[in-house]
Design a protein around this nucleic acid. Sequence first.
DNA 1: ACCTGAACACCGTTCAAGT
DNA 2: ACCTGAACACCGTTCAAGT
Lengths: 209, 209
Amino acid sequence: MPKRTGLNEEAIARRALVMLDEEGVDGLSMRKLATALDVSVMALYSYFTDRGALLDAVAQLVYAEVELPGPGAGPREQLRRLMHAVRRVLHTHPRSLPLVTRYPPRTTAALAFVDAGYRAVLEAGVSPAEAARCYRALAAYSIGTASVEVTGYFERPPAPNDPASAAAIARALPAVAEVSPFLAGLDDEAEFDYGLDLVLDGLLNRHHD
Amino acid sequence: MPKRTGLNEEAIARRALVMLDEEGVDGLSMRKLATALDVSVMALYSYFTDRGALLDAVAQLVYAEVELPGPGAGPREQLRRLMHAVRRVLHTHPRSLPLVTRYPPRTTAALAFVDAGYRAVLEAGVSPAEAARCYRALAAYSIGTASVEVTGYFERPPAPNDPASAAAIARALPAVAEVSPFLAGLDDEAEFDYGLDLVLDGLLNRHHD
DNA sequence: ACCTGAACACCGTTCAAGT
DNA sequence: ACCTGAACACCGTTCAAGT
């Protein structure tokens, strides 16, 4: 008689995603995950060759959560909605960012949003060879924005450890001192749209002429 | 008499960067680093409160390596050169990418390239408030591109574990099947320029009108 | 085929002690 | 102030064994 633990790849990866959301990549250990699933650690290795394979599976689950835009809009609007959906998923699972930059989409479910993106670019009349370049630029911008947002790259003005040197920084880096105050007030989603429209306009105009 | 180990923050972080380049973030352990520096593990804790502080210091070293463009060119060309320099550093230290997306520039040396970027945008006649937005979009694109390049996001056509399902993928994801073959042939630097020009044109034209 | 427990070779960090 | 060694509480993974 089998042990009837109800274990399978999907169930393990789902529980791992919950743990990732709560504790981050470093907090997601095989041992804690096994405890949470009420099995021995080594039971997990019947489904994943190692921790890397598990993290990959978690990344695929995240990609699969990207909401595909419904039909009825032009290609440009489809792309805009799709990139917003990508950004939204990364905000739902901010701790998954290190995984997303390590494991590309691979499963059918994970590739669904990529397919939708290619389709929209092709519908705009772009050749397959050019569609690859277009989508790559869009993906780079979306992933980069999410990365910058989630890590708070521009969140606060630079603060050196030594508080006495704040004045020194202002003297050595006048432009940083002048511009930094405005970074704090930016609205993330509006900024995302700002750059996204730039890239979309550039891409689609270039191929319409 | 002090132990004359020649230890200091900078020397430790420099050696850590070498180890990061060779073995990646996971391979950069406090214990191995101490052995490489010929001191006990705990000696490192006199200079860094924990491993995170060390990784932060390594990230600052990487930022400080960004080559600033010389004078003599217009703001647009300066920005183009600067973003290429950022990309170049991330290619010199590809394993530093997880650090760069975790620890923003903070020291004076690390902020030098950010200052140069702001200065160029300001020189283009953009207001400080708008300069913050412009630079943010540029940084997002550059970091995202480096991320996509280094992780090989678009390097190979998607290959599911189950080879029998390759045909199934082609059926379920027709646009992926059509576009993917063209991704392999792309030249990374040319693609970077492709999108960078798009963003630069959009940003600078918007503010010139 | 799936699951277990013990063991191995690692980690980061705390603590008490040395100079 | 700087450095050490021992100890603690963790890791991922191998192995031999169980059903």
